[in-house]
Amino acid sequence: MPMKVDYVVRETTSNLGRNLSITIASVLTVFVSLVLVGSSLMLRTAVENATQRWQGGIEFVVYLNTTASQDQIDSIARALDDSPEVEGYTYFDQEASYEEFKRLFADSPEMVDSVTAEDLPPSFRVKPVNKDADSVRSLSDTFRERAGVRDVILASKTIQLIQDMSRSLTLIIVVVALGLLFVAGLLILNTIRMAMFARRREIEVMKLVGATNWFIRVPFMLEGLVQGLIGALSAIGALILIRPVFEGWLPKASEIPLVSGFTVGTGSLIGIYLLLAVVGALVGTIGAGVAVTRFLDV
C-alpha cells in the first residue's frame, strides 16, 4: 500500500510535540542508561586492551632475545612441555608479537611505524598448574637462566585486581543500565499510549473508512523509534565528548608496569556506538510496539 512519507512525518512530529514533557523524560532515560552502558563497555575494552597479555590464566611470560636461535627456542618449548607444573603455554613468534603490538597501539600509528617485527622479542605465555604466588615464582625462575631468555615477567597482583574490579564494575553498571532501559521502555510505551488517546477520534475514523492497521500503527511506532534513537544519539555524542577525559583519568601505561596503555581502539568504539544506537532504537520500537498492540485495538 502506498504510504505517504509526508503524512507519516507530519503525524510523527506532531505527536512528539504534543507530549513534550514525557517525551523528554523518556529520551533522557534512554540517554542516561545508554551513557552508562557505553562507558562501562569502554572501561571494559580499555582494561582488556591493557591486560591482553594476561588473560586466560597466563601467569608469567618468558621473553626471549630477538637473536635467540631456533635450538634455544625449541629447548625451552621442550622444557615447558615436559614440566608437570605447566598446564599450557602459547608461543608468540616475532610476527605474532608484531600483530599484537599493532592491535594494542592501533590508535598510535607513529608507535607502530617506529617498530618492526625484528625489534620485538618472541615470547612464551605460560599458564601454570598451580597458581599460588610462590610456586609461580619458583617455576618462572627455572626459565630465567636458560640460554636465549632475556627476561621473565610475572603477572602482578595489580593486574588481577584491575581485571576483577573491571569485571564487577561492568556487571553492576550493566545491571543498573538494563533497569533504566526497562524504565525507558515503559515511559515510551506510556507516551505512545497518551498519543493514541489524544488521537482516538482520528483512529476511530481511520478504522471506519478502511485505513490499514499498519497505516494507523506506523506513525506511533516511528514515534517510539525516534525517541529511542534521539536518546541513543545523544548518549553517543556524550561519550565522544567524555572519551578524552575518560582516557586521561585512567592510569597511564608508564604508571603501571606490565600493561600496555589503557586505550579504546577506534574499531571497538564504533562497535560500541553502533550497539548503543541499535539498543536505543530497539527499546523505542519495542515500547511503542507493545503500546500499539495492547491499546490500539485494530
Binding site: 502506498p2 504510504m3 477520534r201 482520528e202 476511530e204 475514523v205 481511520m206 473508512v209 490499514t212 497505516f215
Partner: peptide
Amino acid sequence: CIFQDFKLLPSKTVFENVAFALEVIG
C-alpha cells in the same frame, strides 16, 4: 458509515474531514 453523532474531527475543516477518508487509504 454515518452515525447519529457524526464522528467528525473537530480540529479539521470540512474539506480536511472529507479528504482524510481518502488520504488514509492512500
